[in-house]
Amino acid sequence: METPHLTFPLLVTLLLNGVAIGMLYFLVAVGLSVIFGLMHVLNFAHGSMSMVGAYVGLAVFRLFGDPATGTAPTWAFALAILGGAMAGFVLGWVTERFLIRPLYKRPIFLILLTLGLILVLDETVKLIWGTSPQGLVIVPGLSGTVDVLGQPFAVYRIFLISFGLLMIGLTWYVVNKTRIGIIIRAGVQDSDMVQTLGINVRQIFTLVFAFGAALAAMGGIATTPFTGVHPAMSGDFLLKTFIVVVIGGFGSTTGTALGAICLGLTEQFLPWFFPRFAAVGPVVLMAVVLLVRPEGLFSVSGRRAG
């Protein structure tokens, strides 16, 4: 196969692309990571929650858009992100409070429950919006390209990198600098002990689940200018989330950020070297990390928090 020479400007573009995609993966994955670290719930419906966010976001976007061209002003996209996040928040809140909470003592049933939720959420989405892809979301204010070392680079990717960095910064601040963050980090180690200090951990569980789903939903809507909105998103998101979280280590927000960027870069660079099997690369990477270093590549002491 003929591959163009990997020039320096191209290398920079691939790097930036990888980081931009990595930001999306961070948004989608960070909730699952913290939820697992804190509550030991592996939420298989996490990808579906992301997808619901994308669909709701799209609906909000279209409220203000031009149906003929599929475009809408930039502020409508901001509203779409917000709307999708709110949908995710409500979905996460209800799921934790009414479905997951009664099952904390039965871990296998928690897995089964979230599997069932995949079917319920995915099919409900198809019921409301149909099975065909919904077309790209075009935000004129964020379209176009700029010149980076002579290579065109999409403005939207610059937006993604900035938005992603902002969200990474926010999560880092919440986890490391606020009381809720202290409770989360403590709860990842021993939530019973946190309870005995007079803290209602269950409330924090609900909150974390809701915010995790909200971030995933944001990630869902933020991908739509690339991929459009389609029902296969949920499965894609789920697998990518697992890969990110395994690489980064469960329960760690910093690890998730690093794992997400790692996956973004792998996906950008792998096709240059192994074009035929690039698709299977990330999954193999996940399997290898699980076998060799199940606590994640970026954990220092085998402990996971922070």
Binding site: L113, G116, L119, V120, L127
Partner: peptide, 19 residues
């Protein structure tokens, strides 16, 4: 047409009420 929705509901229902 979305019959798998019912499978999902059976799933959730079984887990919650008929483990």
């Amino acid at each position: 047409a979305r019959w798998q929705l019912f499978l999902g509901l059976i799933y959730v229902g079984t887990v919650m009420f008929l483990p």
